[in-house]
Amino acid sequence: MFVTPAYAQAAGGGAGAIAQFIPLILIFVIMYFLILRPQQKRVKEHRNMVEALKRGDQVITQGGLIGKVTDVKDDELTVEIAQGVKVRVVRATIAQVVNKTAPVAANS
């Protein structure tokens, strides 16, 4: 007989399949700690900074305008960029607070 029967190799349990997914899981964990988590932290810090804006703060917008906050509304600020020149700015477009005003002490 010239032809020998071919036998399929027996599949070796579930350990081989789990071992194939370990690198994929490790890549996801590394991406979470190097990319996603720091980005979530920056978003939270920006949200807190924008919520804490008040009249008198000097700010820089994402467009590069530097000015002083003169009026604070729900989702919009009025920023004075020059003497007598005021612009309305969406609150979320504030990139940085340059100088925060000191809270006014209550006279007792």
Rank of each mutant, 00 (worst) to 15 (best):
G14Y: 15
N48V: 04
R37D: 07
G84S: 14
V43L: 12
G67K: 00
G56I: 00
L65G: 03
K86T: 14
F2Q: 04
M49Y: 01
Q39A: 11
G13C: 15
Q39C: 10
M49Q: 02
Q9L: 12
A92Y: 11
F28A: 15
V87Q: 13
A105N: 10
A102M: 07
V104P: 03
Y32R: 08
Y7H: 09
E76F: 08
V79W: 04
A8T: 03
I30M: 13
A19H: 02
T78S: 12
T4H: 06
G16I: 04
V59K: 00
D71Q: 10
Q96A: 10
P38C: 08
V97R: 00
V43I: 15
A19P: 00
I18Y: 05
V79Y: 07
T70Q: 08
F21Q: 10
A19F: 02
K86C: 10
K44V: 14
M49L: 14
G64D: 07
R55I: 10
F2D: 11
T4L: 07
L65K: 07
V50K: 08
D75H: 11
T61W: 12
Q62T: 11
I25Q: 13
T93M: 05
K100P: 02
I81D: 03
V97A: 01
D71P: 00
V59M: 01
V3T: 04
V79S: 09
Y32Q: 10
K68M: 15
V79Q: 06
V98R: 02
A8D: 08
G56R: 00
Y7M: 07
T101Q: 05
I66K: 10
S108P: 09
R37M: 08
K86N: 13
E80N: 12
E80H: 06
E51R: 07
A52I: 04
I27E: 11
V104F: 01
M31A: 12
